[in-house]
Design a protein around this nucleic acid. Structure first.
Length: 413
RNA sequence: GUGGGUGUAGCUCAGUUGGUAGAGCACCUGGUUGUGGCCCAGGUGGCCGUGGGUUCAAGUCCCAUCACUCACCCCA
């Protein structure tokens, strides 16, 4: 029989790996709740138009990376490729927004993008995501960065770089875009790569972070956004930096950083690592003031970030499972049922451990006991052992053991 | 979507100029050890990814295909 195998880019996480994800999630809950964020869970499947309207038709994500398919009534559905769109949709639909109020949510779970898998990139991947609605203040952006770095610190990661930039707003970005286009036109078009020649018309900002060496060189002297910010954006960005400076968060300014999703304005940021293969971004985010309105909601500002759990997991050390309290070795079939019941009694007392099933030799069972890392090995059954008794063996160096009455042993715990 | 690399035992890998397969670890059995860790002896286990082709003969050469992997691209 041919075996059915998993879909490309979809992974099974066995206990060692799953433990890392559980760890990250519990740290996120712990840290984020300290900042007043509440957990929000949204559906994995959404109407395709949600992503077209929010992420942008011209982005790679929407253009060629979505898992999109019709349902039984021929409506186009899409497995969410990122979290923000769904969170915004839920926020709007809930009608919880009141002018002047602030809402903070975090969420995590699987996201889906149809890309070629490689190190730090799966088709089903997982993000931890946080969003703030209703605050256009720069302090909201700064708070997100503080919370994000606290979280990364909490899970024990070092050697990460925080980069920030401002993308301007609807007032000043058009002028900057024009300045960029003018700059490109002053150069010989043929020197740009094919993608950039297209991008300088459709999305001039993207040319800035093209990785083709010739493009990089051409872009070296291009005007930078931070020189073209309007006074409001300038002041906004200055305040974000001031909070970060005050909190002593190390960051670098990267005026060439742009974001892949269309909805970002003003503050944007990225956290990168050099230790995860060719990928570098472990987290990214920014402000999206027009998005809520674009999706049919009130005129409500928003800002948020997402971090990639697969990439963080690459940086995490292995998490040692907690050693069980006991391993109950059953000597013969006759004692098996008794052993199961006795183990239940131990667990009711709050102890953890497993019972050997009766197959195999005593030697292999003792090996299993040793391998399990249990603090105590319990032995039941066997002709030389009287009924109602249990042998208790210390698995540490001195390996002392004694045989006693089961009821007395239970009572002594 | 485009490139490169790799597919041999449960795992990590050897396999020489083509002659129907090996090691270590793991596992099992026995011995020793207070019934486990160390040690000793033995043992189970491989359509050599799949399908074609060349050849007297293919793990080894050729073609195709699938899978995994790294990178481009893009992003978290």
């Amino acid at each position: 029989m041919a075996k059915v195998q998993k879909i490309k880019g979809f992974a099974d996480l066995f206990p060692d790996e799953a433990a890392k994800y559980t760890f990250m999630e519990s740290c996120a809950r712990e840290v984020f709740s300290r900042y007043g964020f509440g957990e929000l869970r949204t559906p994995i499947l959404e109407k395709t138009e949600l992503f077209q309207k929010s992420i942008g038709e011209d982005t790679d994500v929407v253009g060629k990376e979505m898992f999109t398919f019709p349902d039984r009534k021929d409506r186009s559905l899409t497995m969410r490729p990122e979290a923000t769109a769904g969170v915004v949709r839920a926020f709007i639909e809930s009608k919880i927004h009141q002018p002047g109020n602030v809402s903070k949510f975090f969420t995590f779970g699987p996201m889906f993008r149809y890309e070629r898998p490689q190190k730090g990139r799966q088709r089903q991947f997982h993000q931890i995501d946080a969003e703030i609605f209703g605050a256009d203040e720069p302090q909201a952006d700064a708070e997100l960065i503080l919370m994000l770095t606290s979280f990364l610190n909490r899970i024990g990661l070092k050697n990460l770089t925080v980069e920030i930039n401002s993308l301007g707003c609807h007032e000043c970005r058009p002028a900057y875009k024009q300045a960029l286009v003018d700059y490109y036109h002053s150069k010989d078009k043929a020197n740009f790569c094919e993608d950039c020649r297209r991008r300088m018309e459709t999305n001039p900002l993207r040319v800035l972070d093209c990785k083709v060496p010739t493009c990089k060189e051409l872009v070296q002297d291009a005007p930078v956004i931070t020189d073209h910010l309007c006074p409001d954006c300038e002041a906004h960005f200055a305040d974000v930096r001031a909070v970060l400076d005050g909190a002593k968060v190390a960051y670098t300014l990267n005026p060439r950083m742009v974001r892949g999703l269309d909805y970002y304005v003003r503050t944007c940021f990225e956290v990168t690592s050099n230790d995860i293969g060719s990928q570098t971004a472990v987290a990214g985010g920014g402000r999206y003031d027009g998005l809520v309105r674009n999706l049919g909601g009130p005129d409500c500002p928003g800002t948020g970030f997402a971090c990639g759990m697969e990439r963080l997991a690459l940086l995490l050390d292995d998490i040692a499972p907690e050693a069980p309290d006991f391993y109950l070795a059953v000597v013969d079939q006759e004692a098996s049922n008794e052993a199961m019941l006795f183990a239940q009694a131990l667990r009711k007392k709050g102890l953890s451990g497993e019972v050997s099933f009766a197959g195999g030799s005593m030697k292999s069972r003792m090996r299993a006991a040793n391998k399990s890392g249990a603090k105590t090995c319990l032995i039941m059954g066997g002709s030389e052992l009287a009924d109602e008794t249990i042998t208790v063996k210390d698995m540490a160096g001195n390996r002392e053991q004694e045989t006693l009455d089961r009821k007395l042993y239970l009572a002594s715990l």
